[in-house]
Amino acid sequence: MADVSEGLTPEVLMDMYYHMVLARVLDDRMWVMNRLGRAPVVYSSNGHEATQVASAFALDRGHDWVVPYYRDLALVLAMGMTPRDVFLHLMGRADDPNSGGRQMPAHWGSVDLKILTTGSVVTTQMMHAAGIALAAKLKHEPTVAMATFGEGSTSQGDFHEALNFAAVMKLPAIFLNENNGYAISVPARKQMAVPDVAARAQGYGIPGVVVDGNDPIKVFEAVRAAAVRARAGEGPTLIEAKTYRFVPHSSDDDDRAYRSREEVAEAKKHDPLVVFEQELREQHLLDDAQHKAVLDRAKAAVDDATEFADTAPDPDPSTLGRHVYHEAVL
């Protein structure tokens, strides 16, 4: 059994913490932009940072693929997307590396960072991760593909088809469920008659693991174990990270309609940023000065991104018809 916490050096732990803080600060700024009328819609990773950052860090970044969904701001930052990239995307600018301003915010994609392009139709991405893993297996490459998805999305048929296909073919895939208890307004108990998404793994003959999604170390270990298993040719793993979203589904949602303020306040006691900050302080990796330094660094990056995207050019309307089909390189 490989040591699954291998690589969690103090530097790496601090880097993870930085990315979690960066995601939160960036997320908060996006909401400000929305309320200022500068960004028509915002989707948040607020509350999911531990799951997303730690799972990315557990992969071989630059080599392994992630196949995300709209919730995954912190994940793509941890994969190497910059705050400037995120803001160019948010504001639909020409230089948005995700889509050149074509997609609504939080529809990630980067060939260089091995982040698969994202659509809006939930759960289709699980199949793409299986396909990337299929190619990796056939090419005898040690690549792992990790798909992420919400618990509401597990009601889709593609969830079943992807898990079954990957399990039968023993593909090097990881299916990471970010269970925040809600699909917009609909609670998990109305999506499924079992308490845990992970329990479904049994029906496919693969491991199903539940982890505390607010604890980055636990998430890191679970994803690393799944990656080791995948690379050894033993097939996929379904991981369920239990977490919570602290803000509405999107900037167009009002979550007061479907959950109490008490419930949200209770969940915030387990805010992954707070949990991890305490952990790092206990390990003497973080003190007040370092804490402030991390926050200042994140704020500076976000200020820079906001300013940068603000004056960036919009897509040229004459490009509307481009990239429908492959364009030969002249």
Binding site: W65, V67, L116, T124, M126, M127, H128, A129, A130, G131, I132, A133, L134, A135, A136, L138, K139, T143, A145, G157, D158, E161, A162, N164, F165
Partner: peptide, 16 residues
């Protein structure tokens, strides 16, 4: 069928 096509998309993007 959804899996057949969906995985083909991923496999194509990963070089097949």
């Amino acid at each position: 069928e959804s899996a057949i096509i969906g995985t083909a998309i991923g496999a194509a993007i990963n070089g097949l």
